[in-house]
Amino acid sequence: MADLATLSIAEQLGLTEADPLRLVAVPGQFLVSGAHDLPANSVADIEGGYACWLTPRRRLVVSATPPAGFASDISHGVAVFSIDPAHDTDFVAMGCALPPTALAEGKCAQTVFAGLKLLLYRRHGLLHLHVERSLAPHILAWFRQAATAL
């Protein structure tokens, strides 16, 4: 019996070159609860990847290997996008009330964007967006509509 095939988020969404969102390939994503020393609302490199602050006792770890402790593998459950750098401040201004300072390099923020909760952070200059996989079609539709207003 063959292994079960994977339906990628890209295939599911029908993303094109013209879209203001690009899928970012990440090796894996884990919700990790427990004590940590990440400063609030920051994203920082760690061994094997990087981590985003979610709460004083929870991080999102992006890496191939499951971290130790209470870690849940959500790799399949979260779509990771990068936002077109030419217009990322415009999209943020349209989608949420975050000030630009909240998304400076190395900062991350969970916020209500286009009516749903998601994670934004800036890493290597690029603004990343993590959204629940089931809501990825809605977010893409929102970005496509918002792009017409630019």
Binding site: G115, R133, S134, L135, P137, H138
Partner: peptide, 16 residues
Amino acid sequence: MRHGDLYAPKRQLPAQ
């Protein structure tokens, strides 16, 4: 933008 299809976020099943 909150009207029509974008009025409220609707979740989609993985096997849609």
